[in-house]
Amino acid sequence: MSKIMKTRILAFLFILISTSVFGGEPFISQPQGDPWTQQQLLDPAELARVLKNPKLPQPLVFSIGMEAVIKGSIEIGPVMRSQSLNLLKEKLTKLTKNAQIVVYCGCCPFASCPNVRPAMALLKSMQFTNYKLLNLPQNIKVDWIDKDYPMND
């Protein structure tokens, strides 16, 4: 069994366990596969460059994980939970379909992250045309904080 498969099974078990641990708080069913293309992955260095230059068009950055670490990002909460996913949907409903949107979690690598797939699947289903997933291969510490990229206070 490949390492990625093992990690996915672990992540699935985790969601099952969490459902019982967190007292039945509603969890969404995870989309199958990766609902994004290689072109939709945004390099953190590129986002940092844009955030540091207010003259450039600024994207709307949504934290769809545990904490809004990135400067100016909007905290939605972990969208593995239906309450947070509904909040994201509510925010997105107010935007035009070509709005520049970036989502990130950063808890862990994509293979074991329970939040990136629901967020990207939602953006796709709502037919947005200009959205990206921040490419944090390891986590928000290694790929953002340790590089001294802009952070919320």
């Binding site: 992540a11 078990l13 985790f14 972990p78």
Partner: peptide
């Protein structure tokens, strides 16, 4: 608690 292998 958000880390699946840690919880396991």
């Amino acid at each position: 608690t958000w880390c699946a292998p840690c919880v396991n």
